[in-house]
């Protein structure tokens, strides 16, 4: 057991999975000699060599395209796209190929591969280096979309993703890379995909978040407890798709109120799907309309106004109060 930040926790998962399974390899821009733009792949090249830790040319479509080929053959590539905003260059390979082989070949071929991408705000960067696009991947049948909320879930979910027989888009919140350290067990720990966690129990309102927004949600819950005396149940989704509908619905059936927080723009975002799920399965339990706290419907804010765009504690608290007061 050691206290690790999210970078080190992800790095540990990669080291251990590569040791365990010789079919796991890492490919991406600057993942080898340089150790990765955020150092997540540090020392892998030194330990496993250039055959398994591949510095690719700067060619996203080629990284994913060749990884699909490797996966069809039975290897388990873990690809790194330097920033999620660069992934549109390879979106076609992800959507048209990685996601579809199982259906297209009716199970004869499948792609066991993980595509890691840093996403989201918190580093005062521009456009492609700061945006949150989980909704695009969550919408694609055949893909799994995973977003950890801290070092321990990052490690457990990355191991789970590498072992998952289907292609997994694995988003890592840049704002969380160095934000906090957590106890991470030395022995390999796996978290199942498609399973949310109730990280705080409460009876008055269900607050649903993931990734960097989980911390915001938890802080908001604390404020509401301290100032309003209400008990908020906080759910960490961990996997966006497939959505753990059962955990969400069970919680809202108990609390009768739900607020969803995400960093992606509001319209047609994951919050819409979660709200629809609640409406379908827990309509008669609802005491108030479901609210979403999300980024505005703009493609980017510019670093000077990033903070105004990404949900913060005050916005989440305000939305919860409106819901509670309804």
């Amino acid at each position: 057991m050691a206290k690790l930040n999210m970078v080190k926790a992800l790095n540990l998962a990669l080291h251990q999975e590569m040791e365990r399974d010789p079919d796991v390899l890492v490919i991406g821009e600057d993942v080898g000699v340089d150790g990765g733009v955020f150092r997540v792949t540090e020392d892998l090249h030194r330990k496993f060599g250039g055959r398994r830790v591949i510095d690719s040319p700067l060619a996203e479509a080629a990284i994913i395209g060749t990884s699909v080929g490797m996966a069809l053959y039975g290897l388990k590539p873990v690809c790194e796209i330097q920033f999620s905003g660069f992934a549109f260059q390879c979106f076609h390979q992800i959507e048209n190929h990685a996601a579809r082989y199982r259906t297209r070949s009716q199970g004869r071929f499948h792609c066991q591969m993980v595509i890691r991408m840093p996403y989201g705000g918190g580093v005062r960067a521009l456009e492609h280096h700061t945006e949150s696009e989980e909704q695009f991947y969550a919408h694609i049948p055949g893909l799994k979309m995973v977003i950890p909320s801290g070092p321990r879930t990052a490690r457990g979910l990355l191991v789970g993703a590498i072992r998952d027989p289907d292609p997994v888009i694995f988003f890592e919140a840049k704002g969380l890379y160095h934000a906090a350290r957590e106890e991470v067990p030395d022995e390999i720990e796996t978290l199942p995909l498609g399973r949310a966690q109730v990280v705080q129990e409460g009876k008055d309102l269900t607050l649903i978040a993931y990734g960097a927004m989980l911390r915001v949600a938890r802080e908001a819950a604390q404020v509401l407890q301290d100032e309003d005396g209400v008990e908020i149940e906080v759910i960490d989704l961990l996997t966006i798709s497939p959505l753990d509908r059962e955990t969400v619905v069970t919680s809202v059936q108990k609390t009768g109120r739900a607020v969803i927080v995400h960093e992606a723009p509001k319209s047609f975002g994951p919050g819409a799907e979660i709200a629809a799920t609640i409406m379908e399965a827990a309509f008669l339990s609802l005491e108030a309309p479901i609210r979403r706290v999300a980024a505005y419907d703009v493609s980017f804010a510019g670093f000077a106004r990033e903070k105004a765009n990404v949900p913060d504690v005050a916005r989440v608290v305000a939305a919860c109060r409106e819901t509670l007061a309804f």
Binding site: L126, E127, H128
Partner: peptide, 21 residues
């Protein structure tokens, strides 16, 4: 202030922009 270092555009100078990708 919305483009930033990587997305400088200047129509008056026929500078069609910086591109991050």
């Amino acid at each position: 202030g919305k483009g930033g270092s990587m997305h400088l555009f200047d129509k008056s100078k026929n500078f069609l922009g910086g591109h991050a990708i």
